[in-house]
């Protein structure tokens, strides 16, 4: 009788520990897939991808795993929701990289254009700036009437 009781107690303990291990293992699996997706997102960000929204989703997935640990009765629902979010982020990474590469390409074009524009403007200013300046100066003053108020003798001006 005692032997049977001990055997059943041991089997209950083993089963419950296996179940707890299984639950923890499932949580750890989701955490591992979140970390794996995070690593991919970091690489995508290096290629110019805007990972803000994807990061928010991963953060939400982490939160769901945390909630799953606290609420074992809803664990399955919360974990599957977390898995869906991770999958959503994972599948969006190639598109994010593509967009990022495009963004970097157009940024480089913009930088090259600005550099070229500055060089051209510098050249134009250096060579044609003085001419433009004096032409404008003359145009602005073309209608000016000069009135000589007092005639000064040539000798006085020279201080002699």
């Amino acid at each position: 009788m005692i032997k049977e009781l001990a055997a059943s107690l041991i089997s209950v303990l083993i089963i419950s520990s296996i179940m707890i291990q299984g639950c923890m293992g499932e949580n750890e699996d989701v955490i591992r897939s979140i970390r794996d997706t995070y690593s991919k997102l970091v690489k995508a960000e290096e290629k110019g991808a805007d990972v803000r929204d994807a990061a928010m989703k991963l953060q939400k997935a982490l939160k769901l795993v945390e909630e799953a640990e606290e609420n074992p009765e809803n664990r399955e629902t919360l974990l599957s929701e977390a898995r869906e979010l991770v999958e959503e982020v994972r599948s969006s990474i190639p598109l994010l990289i593509e967009e990022g590469e495009k963004k970097i390409f157009w940024r480089n074009i913009a930088i090259a254009s600005v550099v070229a524009m500055i060089a051209i403007l510098s050249f134009l200013t250096y060579y044609y700036g003085p001419r433009v300046f004096w032409t404008l100066w003359l145009k602005i003053r073309s209608r000016w009437v000069i009135e000589i108020i007092e005639r000064v003798r040539e000798n006085d001006r020279r201080g002699g």
Binding site: I31, I34, Y38, V51, R52, A55, M56, L58, Q59, L62, E66
Partner: peptide, 8 residues
């Protein structure tokens, strides 16, 4: 305890 956060 342990807290995990992903932040941009």
């Amino acid at each position: 305890d342990r807290y995990e956060v992903i932040l941009p």
